[in-house]
């Protein structure tokens, strides 16, 4: 399995506090059966501003320690960007790294507020020959209210990464229901843990995988957790299925007259 979303780097963001916790998490990941992890610590302007070179140095140092400890796992560079009009420029200037230095760019939206310019950012990124990947759409209030917005994003050229732990209700019932809707509509392309702490998600992977298998089957889970993320590692493109339109009431515009 390959984890496309994690916060394991020590004291870079709100993830692992120190190197001791980082190694606790890495060992848990090994036990859970992960072979590769993208270290996607936050990059938020004015808050967490570790640039690409710093991340590369930290990951190199951690990889050395991993080899000394003889653990069978690889950490790859990455970042979870925060949506803004500046994001495409930051990537162009090499401040925010892409996932494993491939063409895939992971970024998140605010959880509660509604951002109007998502499509513009997606368009800008695709024009730069990059592939935008939107992190945990099922956690956004915007998508919980109207999941078909996520389908619009896919049609504009973005891919979606959902969180493993949403299926066991870690982020609330609404997120769980939204994840079900997205999975049923073939609108999920990657799965990631979004793991911040030791002893949280990696220790519950058995339970999570069981839930996923029950919902989408063994083959589809293999595709989302291994095959598609492998394409990021190899910097390849893959064909996606046309997502189905999500049924259910769409918020209608009220008549004014």
């Amino acid at each position: 399995m390959i984890d496309t979303h994690s916060h394991i780097l020590p004291s870079v963001d709100d993830g692992a506090k120190d190197i001791i916790e980082t190694f606790k998490i890495i060992k848990e990941a090994c036990d859970a059966g992960f072979s590769d992890i993208f270290a996607t610590s936050h990059y938020i302007e004015g808050e967490y501003e570790f640039d690409k070179t710093d991340r590369a140095f930290i990951i190199d140092a951690i990889m050395q320690k991993i080899k000394e400890e003889r653990l069978d796992i690889n950490i790859h560079i990455g970042a979870e960007g925060y949506i803004s009009n500046e994001l495409p420029n930051l990537i162009k200037e090499g401040i925010v790294p892409t996932l494993g230095e491939s063409r895939y760019v992971l970024f998140e939206l605010p959880l509660r507020a509604k951002v109007m310019y998502t499509d513009e950012v997606i368009l800008k990124l695709t024009k730069m020959n990059l592939i935008p990947v939107i992190a945990h759409p099922e956690r956004y209030e915007l998508i919980q209210d109207d999941p078909s917005i996520a389908i619009d994003w896919i049609e504009s050229g973005a891919l979606l990464q959902c969180n493993y732990a949403s299926i066991i209700g870690r982020y609330g019932m609404k997120a769980k229901e939204t994840l079900y809707k997205l999975l049923d509509a073939d609108a999920v392309h990657f799965l990631g843990t979004d793991n911040h702490r030791a002893g949280s998600i990696y220790t519950r992977m058995d339970e999570i995988k069981k839930e996923f298998r029950r919902r989408i089957g063994r083959d589809k889970l293999y595709e989302l957790s291994e095959l598609n993320p492998r394409c990021i590692l190899n910097n390849e493109e893959f064909d996606i299925e046309m997502p189905k339109r999500i049924k259910g009431r769409r918020k209608q515009i009220k008549a004014v007259d």
């Binding site: 780097l9 570790f50 070179t53 590369a56």
Partner: peptide, 23 residues
């Protein structure tokens, strides 16, 4: 596209690197 300019870690990163070496 993905060539970074300066190959030196920042001060904050150096602290983290030191802690990793000590681990």
């Amino acid at each position: 596209k993905f060539k970074s300019k300066v190959e030196v870690p920042s001060d904050k990163a150096r602290e983290i690197l030191d802690s990793i070496k000590k681990y």
